[in-house]
Design a binder for these strands. Structure first.
Lengths: 354, 354
DNA sequence: TTGAAAGCGCTAACAG
DNA sequence: CTGTTAGCGCTTTCAA
């Protein structure tokens, strides 16, 4: 309680251990070799006095704050918490701290947050852009000042290093699975707009679904990445009597499933439903939703690795990298083969394939 | 791309506007009155040169970083993203930045994160403790150094200011609603342990359910706050043929609902199900789950206000405050009255009561 | 109202 | 290996 004790500084430790501040700094930061006995004395004194380095001073002097800014569109988007978790863990493991900014899907707020983070001298920036187009200027400007990695969504070509899931590969996994389990009249419930996830998944469906049925590439309905759209979309395509609904993400799939159940359709007996991302709700929905799991931990690891590479070689630019990670198909009840019987064979048991 | 431009400092602005750094500082920080014409020239120069204050230097000098640490148990707990969102927005609105630490439900990691944040000279700390008991020492020590507000969960009495929902009031809302809709054989699916949410909700059920049925306070099953437990708990209480399952949080309710549907029970016809928290899944479940909504934005506002109060009067301790906010009952299909007919009257339409 | 000067706590040259 | 000497960029006395 209260104002806290007067802080103990390097000088105090130096005095207590009978050597210079520089030596103490070297011992504690491990910058350069120091005599064993001196080092011991310093450490002992630091411990005893309860010394805590002052990061502000360190940052001012060494021009590095040990801090990374994380800018994202909406922490309440159910896919992001897991990603944030992995990112913060990966960064903390390297001794960095994470400044979080949720820009509420607003590119203007996003630009302000980026500006503020830069002003706070973050060493690097991790950005999930709010908008493919309208985020571009702010992101490009920021990328000119600090190492910056784009995650999950694109932001135009040539802006910065980026890490994302391979959306095409994911969609191919879904289509292969549906083909293998005898579905033919597939149908796509997607999202329009230029966001990379939306566009790539759309394109992959268009490219791959023709193998199941010549008319499949034409059976698409485009809205946004929401449950509401999933519900509405079912009504638009139901007349075509599809035997599978390929949804561009899990939220759409959840909505579609709800509407199908309202209509009295049997999932997966009459129609299979698949999602994308593997948010928690996909496993907890009844029936569990077959989906494409993003390799979240690996995405985070790649992103921090890219940052570290840039951080290590300041100036020497090197080519931009766009890393795409292969996703994994998670088969659940919503796409079980063998139509007819109601899908009540058990709780949502995830089966990882591939 | 690249290393970024050499930073422009106060000195540069001073030179460009023909006055001293002190004056520039005063103009830009608005600390003291400055001649109108001078101020204009300074601002113009700062703008033209693209001056960005260096927060590290400012922090070193003024002993305030404008930064708040947010420590939480698990960002993937579906209740927290909304809270994090509101907290970051509230703090950003005051010009503060948020350092995020997810301690993965581990009190040891939590203590380390708190230590690191303190070392980074956060002005204040917002903590959702991982464990009622084992978080106590680290939290108490931190509270002695900076203003600290406990959120959502308690951490023993007399540790720090705290903000949370009024769990008892929430449980009372649920019980009143069930009573009003004719439910009598109610049953509680809760969580054991000392965590305040678990204990308070448990106690409130014990205190209030007797009014419905003398045996109700005895019909309880205790596990943890998970979907899995919700599923399992149904099997433990189903023999008692309850007409309502009062769950200690929404995850338990989701699990209970799944198991009930597997058992062929009609919800809400045969049995009502209620949750607590109003996580997104509660609305999206089918049927939608009646639950107690935590006033997330208000919780965040109260917490930042408490911080500001402490920040404003350093030293003058003042009494600790424990703020409890009244929750709101959200009635959905899972507790609809008039038994019998299957709950398919429409999408999950939320009806806010009280 | 403004400027000069001191110094926050630390690290980085540069000598020794 | 260690100490001395300069500051990092800013805010804040203290004088003018």
């Amino acid at each position: 309680m209260g104002t806290g004790v007067a802080d103990v500084t390097l000088r105090d430790v130096a005095r207590a251990s009978g050597c210079s501040v520089a030596t103490v700094s070297r011992v504690l930061a491990g910058t350069r070799p120091v005599g064993a006995e001196t080092a011991r004395r310093v450490r002992e004194a630091a411990e005893r006095l309860g010394y805590r380095p002052n990061h502000a001073a360190r940052a001012l002097r060494s021009r590095a704050t040990g801090t990374v800014g994380l800018v994202l569109p909406q922490i309440t988007n159910p896919f992001y918490p897991a990603l944030v978790r992995e990112l913060t863990h990966a960064l903390h493991a390297e001794g960095r701290a994470v400044l979080l900014a949720d820009c509420d899907d607003d590119p203007v707020a996003e630009a302000e947050y980026i500006d503020d983070l830069l002003s706070r001298r973050v060493d690097a920036l991790l950005v999930i852009p709010a908008d493919e187009r309208r985020s571009r200027d702010a992101v490009a400007a920021a990328a000119a000042r600090v190492p910056l990695v784009l995650m999950d969504r694109g932001c135009g070509p040539g802006i910065a290093d980026s890490v994302a899931v391979d959306n095409s590969a994911g969609m191919a996994l879904v289509l292969d699975h549906l083909a293998a389990t005898g579905r033919r009249r597939v149908c796509f419930l997607g999202a329009d707009g230029t966001a990379s996830a939306a566009a790539e998944r759309r394109a992959a469906y268009a490219a791959g679904s023709g193998a199941l049925d010549a008319a499949a590439p034409g059976r698409i309905a485009l809205g946004d990445f929401s449950v509401e759209w999933g519900r509405a979309a079912v009504d638009l395509v139901w007349d075509a009597r599809p035997d599978a609904l390929v949804c561009a993400n899990d939220l759409i799939a959840v909505g579609a499933l709800q509407r199908l159940q309202q209509l009295g359709a049997d999932v997966p007996g009459d129609v299979a439903v698949t999602g994308f991302d593997d948010i928690p709700m996909a496993a907890l929905s009844a029936p569990g939703i077959t989906t494409v799991r993003q390799p979240v931990a690996e995405l985070a690891a790649e992103a921090t690795q890219l940052l570290n590479r840039r951080l290590a070689s300041p100036g020497s630019e090197g080519p931009q990298r766009a890393i795409r990670l292969a996703p994994e198909l998670v088969v659940r009840e919503s796409s079980a083969p063998g139509a007819g019987e109601r899908g009540l064979e058990g709780a949502s048991t995830a089966v990882a394939v591939s």
